[in-house]
């Protein structure tokens, strides 16, 4: 039956969109965590005194780094994370739109199916 087939394909598509959305949201939460971590570091850097040497972990060793360099580094990282968050947010919105549309489509097909089943035909 073509109607059932359409229902099948629509529901698999819907599920696909849902998993996509889930991974996007996961992405978004990870970015949020990174953002807050970097913001903490920035706050910490803001109250450094000249006697506080800054080191960066490179592989297994600590490399001394200039305070200002470290500060700008964190700043650019924050910028990057913020733009990433914007991008992912846009993707999530778009995905939600698509999922909503698919859902409506699914409901339509389902009502049609039910109608077809309730009217007795051979």
């Amino acid at each position: 039956m073509s109607l059932e087939f359409r229902f099948q394909s629509a529901s698999t598509e819907y599920q696909k969109i849902q998993t996509e959305l889930a991974s996007l949201v996961e992405n978004r939460t990870r970015l949020d965590a990174q953002l807050s971590e970097n913001e903490m570091v920035k706050k910490e850097f803001a109250q450094l005194t000249p006697s506080n040497a800054v080191y960066k972990l490179v592989g297994p060793v600590l490399v001394p780094q200039d305070q200002n360099e470290a500060k700008t580094n964190v700043e650019t990282r924050l910028e990057f994370i913020k733009s990433e968050i914007k991008r992912v947010d846009a993707q999530i919105n778009e995905g939600e739109d698509r999922s909503e549309k698919k859902k409506n489509e699914l409901v339509k097909i389902q009502t049609k199916l039910q109608q077809a089943q309730s009217t007795p035909n051979s």
Binding site: E37, N38, V41, S51, N52, K56, L62, V74, R77
Partner: peptide
């Protein structure tokens, strides 16, 4: 002491500063 402040950065702090941190 050297304190891990996150995201791979470590800061050398005096004992008092570290405790406060």
């Amino acid at each position: 002491v050297i304190v891990d402040v996150g995201t791979g950065y470590y800061v050398k702090k005096s004992r008092a500063q570290a405790t406060k941190y």
